[in-house]
């Protein structure tokens, strides 16, 4: 009884705060402040047509670096928690037979999904999308493969190598920004390589960094999902 009363009290105070915030909110009619700077100078300073990509990879790339670090830590901790013993590792998952439809369709769809994921992160600076979305699409392709054949083993070394090499390369390209550009993770490299606005080879190092981020995120998400799949072996 007291518990329900306290819950109601907490929710009512949250509701009060949110009501006041909602009432005092005035919709903006024009961009102001830092957003206006990004909107006006983003195309000439960074060269990316998609301003969200410009903010994620160039203006605030420290956020992205920290974010992929957090994702790496999460994947590591999950691997640690869901580690299987030797005899569990060799057990076979007993499952209902996979339908013929899923098996055949997955053979057709998996290469296309990989291709689409790669397309999404290579074109991250021109169209909606980028490393995180492309990585998630690649992870979905891996999930489809796992679902079609639950006892499939994914080579763990491949995932680890893809992940470490792309992670180290992002940092190395960031250091290259100190040498050639204005600072750590500066994508413009002092105006060289900005290219023609709106083409695929433009925007300095943004496409390279975002492709590496895409590979890293794809490998990490696949690793997490593979861990959950393997944990089904345990009785």
């Amino acid at each position: 009884m007291l518990r329900n009363f306290l819950i109601a009290l907490v929710l009512a105070s949250f509701g009060f705060i949110f009501y006041n915030l909602y009432n005092s909110y005035e919709p903006q009619t024009e961009l102001t402040g830092i957003a206006a700077h990004y909107a006006e100078n983003g195309a000439s300073e960074v060269g990316a047509a998609n301003l969200v990509t410009a903010v994620v990879v160039s203006y605030r790339s420290f956020d992205t670096l920290g974010e992929i670090t957090i994702l790496f830590l999460t994947a590591a901790i999950i691997s640690f928690f869901l580690k299987l013993s030797k005899e569990d590792e060799e057990r076979v998952i007993i499952h209902r037979g996979t339908s013929e439809l899923l098996k055949t369709a997955s053979q057709l769809l998996i290469p296309l999904m990989f291709l689409f994921g790669i397309y999404v992160f290579i074109n991250g600076h021109l169209t909606p999308g980028g490393g995180f979305q492309g990585g998630a699409i690649i992870a979905s392709a891996v999930v489809l493969a796992i679902m079609a054949n639950p006892n499939m083993t994914i080579n763990h070394n491949v995932i680890i190598w893809v992940e470490s090499i792309s992670g180290v390369s992002v940092v190395l390209i960031g250091v290259l920004g100190i040498v050639l550009g204005g600072g750590f993770l500066d994508s413009t490299l002092d105006g060289y390589g900005l290219g023609e606005f709106g083409t695929i080879f433009s925007a300095g190092t943004i496409p390279i960094i975002y492709s590496l981020v895409g590979l890293k995120v794809g490998a990490e998400l696949s690793n997490i999902l593979n861990m959950y799949q393997k944990s089904q072996k345990e009785v």
Binding site: N50, V52, V120, P128, G129, F132, Q133, A136, S140, L221
Partner: peptide, 10 residues
């Protein structure tokens, strides 16, 4: 659209 893609996939 970027956020929509991420939310739908992840």
């Amino acid at each position: 659209p970027d956020v929509a893609m991420t939310e739908a996939a992840i």
